[in-house]
Simulated assay, not measured.
Amino acid sequence: MNITFIGAGNMAEAIVAGIIGNEVVTAEEVCVTDISEARLEHFEFGYGIRTSMNNAEAVANADVVVLSVKPQIFPAVWPEIESALKPEALVISIMAGIPSATIAHGQPIRVVRVMPNTPALIGRGAAGIAAGELATEFDLEIACTLLGAVGTAVVVTEEEIDAVTALSGSGPAYVFYLLESMLEAADQMGLKPGISRNLALATVIGAAELMLESGEGAAELRAKVTSKGGTTHAAISTLEERGVKDSVVAALLAAQARSKELANG
């Protein structure tokens, strides 16, 4: 299975590293294109793959083409790529905000949209995968295999991609924001930065893994550690009084709305 990545950014590198490292494909089957010679040299020497600065030539024999460019670049690069595609080629897009119908624009092109997130860079990503109108179950399996090499991959409908964008696509930023707040409080309480960083990171990772392994819900786990009149109760009560949960829900709904706006141009 020959795979060509259009764009040599961080997410493309994460997927390339994952699929080669997990032996989903061989290095000889992967090609990456970009306008940056430095990035192409990085891929060539770091992963032993083929590189090119000519998109049309790179996709001519590709079974799978992964669009990993920024959305605003798509209109400029797509015409030459589309004209060079094999009729049976699968197009996988990790571009945010561009519907599969826009990519296919009435042509018989099989498109699968993917919304990944940045923890894919360390093999702990979360990706939503949605089939375009002509994509098959086998196409979804291919996309799940590729993204599964760098984390968790789940199949959703394209109508749900905006919600996935708000939840997991933008999700790492919410966690970083929480950590930023926790560390600021730790500084005000007099903890040394190195100590507070280690404790905060271990707490977030441990809490997530506890929820994963226990199978219990977030509210149930929170209740178990929130004894009435205790320190945790004082903290949670303050968060509730200040409407933090409502703010988080509103934030995700705003992200979903913005994703829809981008998709609609």
Results as ranks from 00 to 15, higher is better:
112 V>P: 05
84 A>T: 05
92 I>D: 00
56 A>G: 05
64 V>E: 05
123 G>Q: 05
91 V>T: 03
137 E>H: 12
168 S>Q: 08
157 T>G: 15
82 E>Q: 14
84 A>M: 04
97 G>K: 09
96 A>C: 08
158 E>V: 01
136 T>K: 02
69 V>D: 02
113 R>T: 00
65 V>N: 04
144 C>T: 10
141 E>A: 14
86 K>S: 03
102 T>D: 11
152 T>E: 13
92 I>M: 12
62 A>E: 01
92 I>N: 04
102 T>C: 12
107 Q>C: 14
109 I>K: 06
125 G>V: 09
176 F>K: 11
131 A>F: 00
118 T>V: 14
83 S>L: 14
71 P>N: 06
103 I>A: 00
119 P>C: 09
143 A>V: 04
153 A>E: 00
87 P>E: 12
59 V>Y: 08
129 I>V: 15
61 N>R: 14
177 Y>G: 11
97 G>R: 08
137 E>R: 13
100 S>H: 01
69 V>T: 11
136 T>N: 08
80 E>N: 03
158 E>Q: 06
168 S>I: 02
64 V>C: 09
123 G>M: 09
66 V>I: 13
80 E>Q: 14
180 E>K: 15
175 V>N: 03
165 T>H: 15
92 I>Q: 06
131 A>V: 00
98 I>Y: 03
106 G>D: 02
130 A>N: 06
60 A>I: 05
61 N>E: 15
75 P>A: 09
178 L>W: 13
183 L>S: 12
156 V>C: 14
73 I>E: 09
88 E>F: 05
117 N>G: 12
154 V>A: 10
159 E>C: 11
127 A>K: 10
152 T>D: 09
157 T>P: 05
123 G>F: 07
160 E>D: 14
115 M>A: 11
63 D>E: 14
100 S>Q: 03
68 S>W: 07
171 G>K: 10
172 P>N: 10
142 I>F: 04
149 A>Y: 01
72 Q>C: 01
178 L>S: 05
70 K>H: 07
83 S>I: 12
88 E>H: 13
101 A>H: 07
115 M>W: 10
152 T>N: 10
177 Y>K: 15
168 S>G: 07
126 A>C: 15
122 I>V: 15
111 V>L: 02
146 L>D: 01
82 E>V: 13
139 D>F: 01
128 G>H: 08
111 V>E: 01
132 G>Q: 00
96 A>P: 01
57 E>L: 14
167 L>R: 05
106 G>T: 00
114 V>C: 15
57 E>I: 07
101 A>Q: 12
156 V>A: 10
175 V>W: 07
125 G>C: 09
138 F>R: 15
68 S>T: 00
147 L>K: 04
132 G>C: 02
82 E>M: 12
87 P>D: 11
114 V>Q: 03
89 A>H: 01
84 A>V: 07
90 L>V: 06
173 A>Y: 04
58 A>P: 06
87 P>L: 08
59 V>A: 05
109 I>G: 02
124 R>E: 15
66 V>L: 07
109 I>P: 06
71 P>F: 04
122 I>Y: 13
180 E>L: 09
